[in-house]
């Protein structure tokens, strides 16, 4: 597959976001995050570092915006006059939303990020030339750039810590963009196992690293095509539709009690992550 072939036949290679007449076939990976259950403990973030070979960059580089946390906990402080320590906060885990109509994909000059048949937004490090357009165009700022060659910079994985690197995930080099993959290495294994047994991946058979460690079970992940999947039931219960840019919650008054929403939906990115609004009081 030469690059000429790729560019000339782009429509054949590019998976577009599904519609009524072109639905997802076997898998559509999706997530839902219950903000009422999220305590902001950061376990998801830590698990992601371990699973996906993320470098811990340190205070200084972090301050320069060189961080690598594919899932980060955003804090939203209450603005009710109380000072810090007594001030309430709300937490929101932010990761790549695996948009069906991803803004990052259309701006990549080399086609390094595109859609898979499973509805994932793939990032191929080998093709990436580091233009960082995708990051500029991502409304969620969920893409992270390798400013340094971390295996050789700052002794990020000193012996014997390099032994704990996940062999199923590439250790990225300098000059490429990276982001949450929905733990695609786990998905591939689960899909292969299921295929050998002549079935689809069962609900709960595959977990993302962040979901696996979440102590309150705030994150659920699964196949949206599978009617028995928990994540699909949650989406349905909240009347959140993948193909719409405005959900029932925002349109009809009777549905105002629904909690499900997707972030920046009005940009028509059709994200694959649904959040459940927080009802309880802010944490102190």
């Amino acid at each position: 597959m030469s690059i000429t072939n790729l560019l000339e036949n782009w429509s054949d290679f590019r998976q577009q976001h599904p519609s009524e007449d072109r639905p997802h076939r076997e898998y559509k990976w999706a997530m839902s995050i219950d903000l009422d259950a999220c305590t902001g403990c950061n376990a998801c973030s830590v698990a992601c570092y371990a699973e996906n070979n993320l470098p811990v960059v340190g205070k200084e580089k972090f301050a320069h915006g060189h961080s690598h946390h594919w899932i980060r906990i955003e804090r939203y402080w209450d603005n009710d006059g109380r000072e810090f320590a007594d001030q309430g906060a709300q937490f929101l885990p932010m990761l790549c939303q695996q948009c069906e109509s991803a803004p990052c994909e259309t701006v990549c000059p080399v086609g390094a990020t595109n859609h898979t048949a499973d509805g994932l937004n793939s990032q191929v490090y080998n093709r990436c030339v580091g233009s960082r357009y995708c990051n500029a165009n991502c409304p969620y700022k969920a893409r992270y750039f390798n400013w340094y060659d971390y295996p050789t910079t700052d002794n990020v994985w000193p012996e014997p810590m390099n032994q704990q690197l996940n062999p199923d995930v590439t250790v990225r080099g300098k000059g490429v963009m990276e982001k949450c993959t929905f733990c695609v290495q786990r998905l591939t294994v689960a899909k292969s196992n299921a295929r050998s047994e002549g079935r689809s991946v069962l609900d709960g058979e595959v977990q993302t690293a962040c979901q696996q460690v979440c102590p309150t079970g705030a994150i659920s992940f699964g196949n949206l095509v599978d009617p028995s999947a928990k994540v699909g039931k949650q989406w349905k219960q909240q009347q959140v539709d993948l193909n719409k840019d405005k959900q029932a919650k925002d349109v009809t008054e009777s549905a105002a009690k629904l909690r499900g929403y997707r972030i920046l939906e009005e940009l028509r990115t059709y994200p694959s992550v649904m959040y459940l609004e927080q009802l309880r009081e802010s944490a102190i």
Binding site: N114, S122, T170, V184, T188
Partner: peptide
Amino acid sequence: PNDCWQCHK
């Protein structure tokens, strides 16, 4: 399969 993530990790 011809999507990138099938083979690239």
